[in-house]
Amino acid sequence: MENLGPDELRLMQGLAQEVTAVRPELVTADASVGELAWVRAKDFDALHRFWRYRHWFDGDRLVAWGWVCLPHRVPRGDGTFRAEQAATLVWQVHPDRPELLTAILDWYDEVAGDVDRLLTLQAADVRAEAIAAAHGYVFDAETGSDEGNWTQGNVRELTDLPDPVLPAGFRFRTAEDVSVADAVEVHRAAWPSPGLTEAAFERVRRTWPYRADLHVLIEAPEGALAATAIIWLDDVTGVAEFEPVGTHRQFRRQGLGTALQLHGMHRARAAGANRMLVACLGAPAHPAARNLYHGVGFRELTRDLPQIKAAS
């Protein structure tokens, strides 16, 4: 496909819903309902010309897809560049059709060309691990090390939720209450690189299943926004997910991340969710986010197994 438009994205999210309902531990990296919405919307302007896509159908039903990002070098707003020398594959197959990963990897070889190829498996997906190994992929020992940048998926049932506690003078807000510029500013203060633009955030707001009432924030006493989290609610499966969650650099170590998560989970439950997901860095060398999420009741669901196939 030449274009990943809203209709194509919704098909991919529909497959994510199916997998989440039956085998949530097999939802691949960046392939959940919320991750697909967030990544496509925020990165479209900078990266869409480097993206390639393909869908596999059984009749009218989507049963597999692949999304490749080719090597690229694009400017950031601060004068630096975002550069990747390898191709990266995000993918998903229905649990009943694991053999389609072979077709995805054949296609990946065709579109990536003579560069290193990266992909991520889930630790629970032993069938995918065997298929990738037969196709020449090996565990990426650097990325997957105890100091690497692999992620783990975490889950929490929305029961026994403590009430959030904010420091004096702070208050909860939603994106319904703030301007686009302010919502973007607090995100950029929490995640400075790569920066979110106002145009990208407008695209986020137009992407299903974004809801401004489930985009929760914390306002500091003087009026500045101090923390932000977007909750993506799938009302079919009753699953909601945080993506992203961040605290302004000037307001960290005050318990705002804990308070915002608890507040967000209360709002998600009130909106119909019964389970919450969040992904974070999983390596022992990067404990901060994992400790934050586990501190409010999340537990590990699965972990990434990064793979690499060197250019021939």
Rank of each mutant, 00 (worst) to 15 (best):
P6G: 13
L9T: 01
Q13F: 06
T20R: 09
L36R: 06
A41E: 11
A41S: 15
K42Y: 12
A46R: 11
L47I: 00
W56L: 06
D58R: 13
L62P: 01
L70I: 14
R73F: 08
G79R: 00
R82V: 11
E84S: 13
Q85W: 11
A86M: 11
V90H: 14
V90D: 07
W91N: 04
D96E: 03
T102L: 06
A103K: 09
Y108T: 04
V115F: 12
V115Y: 10
D125H: 08
R127W: 05
E129M: 04
E142V: 13
W150I: 04
L161H: 01
A175C: 12
A181K: 09
A183C: 10
A183D: 15
G195E: 05
R203L: 13
R203G: 02
R206E: 11
W208D: 14
Y210D: 04
A212W: 01
L214C: 03
A224R: 08
A227Y: 01
L233W: 10
V236P: 01
V245R: 02
G257A: 15
G257F: 10
T258R: 13
L260T: 01
H266L: 10
R267L: 15
N274Y: 09
L277I: 12
A283Y: 00
A285R: 09
A285T: 09
G297M: 05
T302E: 07
R303G: 12
P306M: 01
A310H: 15
